[in-house]
Amino acid sequence: MNIEILEKTPFTLKLYVKDLPIHVLNAIRRAVMSEVPVMAIDYVIFIENSSVFYDEYIAHRLGLIPLTSENASDKYKSPEECAEAGEKKVFSTDCFVKLDLEAEGPENGMLTIYSRDLASSDSDVKPVFDNIPLAKLVKGQKIKLEAFARLGRGKEHIKWSPVSAATHKYVPNIIINSENCNGCGKCIDACPRGVLKLVDGKAVINESNLLLCSFCRLCEQVCEPRAIRVSHREDEYVLYLDFTGALSPRKTLIEASNILIKKLDEFEEKLKNLGVIQ
């Protein structure tokens, strides 16, 4: 296996993966999306809400705020245990982080409540972004609420996923038969991503744009001498992950791999118990 980093920022990761079957890569991608636990607000208790926004509307906005969860999986109980506790309305401190919010409209003008105004009971679990507008208040309007965040998994609700976009893509293999190519340049005009260019009267691949190819095959269709063929490389893929900021890319991938290993071990154990394997 060979991995090359194409792009790495605090919120994105793009990897060029070679010699790894797509089902393995997809298993990792799906584990990242739906299995890696992160924190998100799950219950909101409204003590007072005289704003124009309905309770449900504010609760929904609160739920979607990404919360920093880097140390949360070590400090708090598993999503499954905490989901059960939540259903019984037992907001114990080993499962739930409490976030308080209290605000009142000013005498003059308007007050915007931001995600930074949430006072968290745990300094490790707080909104990733400080300036998400949550509600607006004018004179005489008041909001007082208690929100409870717990660990959860993306398969239960997407607010518990550490990533937003998570994709894998084939790597294009564009074969140009330079003997048949008549240098008409139609393929270059047809390509919406600028993957091809004309050099010395022949169409060649513009290497810097190769990964932008979307396999639309317009170049193939417009080529009268049929000199271009678009296919993909075997066992070469580009994995792209767009993080919400709840977990670091490093922690997300380590957790995802550990979850997959644990699932495979459980499967093997089950087969052993049933006598299918030795």
Binding site: F53, F129, S161
Partner: peptide, 20 residues
Amino acid sequence: MLFPVRCFTCGAPIGHLWEE
């Protein structure tokens, strides 16, 4: 009403960018 916290389609957090 208010600007959404996340993109409806991909779920990327965008609410914090609205005011700027």
